[in-house]
């Protein structure tokens, strides 16, 4: 935990500096007759973030904070593997929406998740994977009138409108 906390505060400090620099695209000082410039609010808050990060880092190094004394590990191997599998499959699902649309990518995601991670029997997996896109379509597109991305499958849906 100690190491992870140190790395995190360093990364967040860099993020804060980036946000400060980015805020400077707009005036950060006082504009006569206009009040504070458009960049002032984010700039000074990012500066505050930076100060917090620096202190978190220093307190950790001097072992003054609970994180600085913690010997607990951030994530064990097994958890990390599960975590990465979930994260990658989720990203692939979202990526596939761009190409094959949401109605192909949702069932694929269900099949992978329930079969690979859940080890559920095929009939159950297929029942849920195939009913999910139908329910999504009926609820969002028909009931709430929100059109969802369909990628190359766009034409298949013309008959429904």
């Amino acid at each position: 935990m100690k190491k992870a906390d140190l790395v995190a505060s360093a990364v967040l400090a860099i993020l804060s500096v980036y946000l400060m620099v980015k805020s400077m695209e707009l005036p950060i000082g006082w504009l006569e007759g206009e009040g504070p410039g458009g960049g002032a609010f984010p700039f000074w808050l990012s500066a505050g973030m930076l100060i917090c990060c620096v202190f978190i880092f220093i307190r950790n190094l001097r072992r003054k904070s609970p994180e600085g004394q913690s010997t607990e590990i951030f994530m064990d191997r097994e958890s990390a593997r599960l975590f990465l599998t979930v994260l990658v499959s989720l990203s692939v699902m979202i990526g596939l929406i761009h190409i094959v649309g949401i109605y192909i990518s949702i069932p694929l995601f269900f099949i992978f998740y329930m079969r690979h991670l859940g080890k559920h029997p095929w009939p159950l997996v297929l029942a849920i994977s195939l009913s999910a896109p139908v329910l999504t379509f009926v609820f969002f597109e028909k009931l709430l009138l929100i059109l969802l991305p369909k990628g190359i499958t766009e034409e298949w849906f013309y008959i429904f409108y």
């Binding site: 929406i97 761009h98 995601f109 998740y113 329930m114 559920h120 929100i146 969802l148």
Partner: peptide
């Protein structure tokens, strides 16, 4: 393992719905 993918899908659709852009989903 059944509930988690359902919630993930609801999140993706829910994140897309307000502005209908994939930018928001990412």
């Amino acid at each position: 393992t059944i509930l988690a993918p359902i919630i993930f899908v609801l999140c993706v659709v829910g994140g897309y719905a307000p502005t209908t852009t994939m930018h928001d989903v990412w």
